[in-house]
Amino acid sequence: MTKRAAAVLLWVGLSSGCAHYRVQAPGAAGASATEARSETLWSLGWGLVQERPRVDNCQDQALAEVTQSTNLGFALISVLTLGLAMPQQVEWRCAKAQPTPGDLGVLGAP
């Protein structure tokens, strides 16, 4: 095998080691109001212990979008530990505030 073919195979192997999963709310609920925040979470013991993201920037609003990503480094950690430790990158955006229904009253009333 030539050096060029080996380099191409190495590049293909390294570039194919990531995955992204994205969930977005439909319609107006999917319009994000905040910048993306992210955190690296770990699943330990084949999923028996799982970290949860600390979503503290939404001020009681819903989530508009959540993306979960993994890369070659995270995959290598998972393989080398036989699944005991599995990191992943989670990114989220908060939805815009929804107006609450209320009584507008009558204009000009005393």
Rank of each mutant, 00 (worst) to 15 (best):
G102Y: 10
G17V: 04
I77R: 13
A97T: 13
S78L: 08
P101D: 12
G30V: 03
V12W: 11
R37C: 02
W46D: 07
Q61D: 05
A29R: 15
T34I: 00
L10V: 13
S69W: 01
M86K: 15
P26W: 09
T67E: 12
F74I: 06
V23W: 15
V79I: 12
S16P: 04
P101L: 10
V12K: 09
Y21S: 14
E39V: 06
L44V: 13
G73S: 09
G17E: 03
C94V: 02
D60C: 01
R52D: 06
G73F: 10
L72G: 10
P99V: 03
A75L: 09
K3E: 10
G45P: 00
L63P: 01
S38Q: 10
W11T: 15
A95S: 14
S43D: 06
G108H: 10
S15P: 05
N71G: 13
L14V: 12
L82N: 04
V79T: 11
D60N: 12
D103S: 11
S38V: 00
A109I: 03
L14W: 12
T2A: 06
P53D: 00
R4D: 09
V66R: 07
A31V: 15
G102C: 03
V49A: 08
T34C: 04
E65G: 02
A25P: 10
A28I: 14
G105C: 06
H20S: 15
G45C: 10
Q98P: 03
P87M: 01
V23G: 13
A7E: 09
W42M: 10
A29V: 04
C58S: 01
L76A: 15
T67N: 05
A64N: 03
P110F: 06
Q24Y: 07
V79A: 14
G102W: 08
A6P: 00
L80G: 02
G102K: 09
P26A: 09
G73W: 12
A75P: 04
H20L: 14
H20Y: 10
W46S: 08
M86C: 08
E91K: 14
E39Y: 04
A62L: 04
Q59A: 08
C18D: 12
L48I: 04
L14T: 13
P101A: 13
G30E: 05
G47H: 03
Q24W: 10
Q24N: 14
R4A: 12
E65S: 09
V79N: 10
A5Q: 14
R22D: 11
E35Y: 05
E65A: 08
T34Y: 00
T81Q: 02
P53T: 00
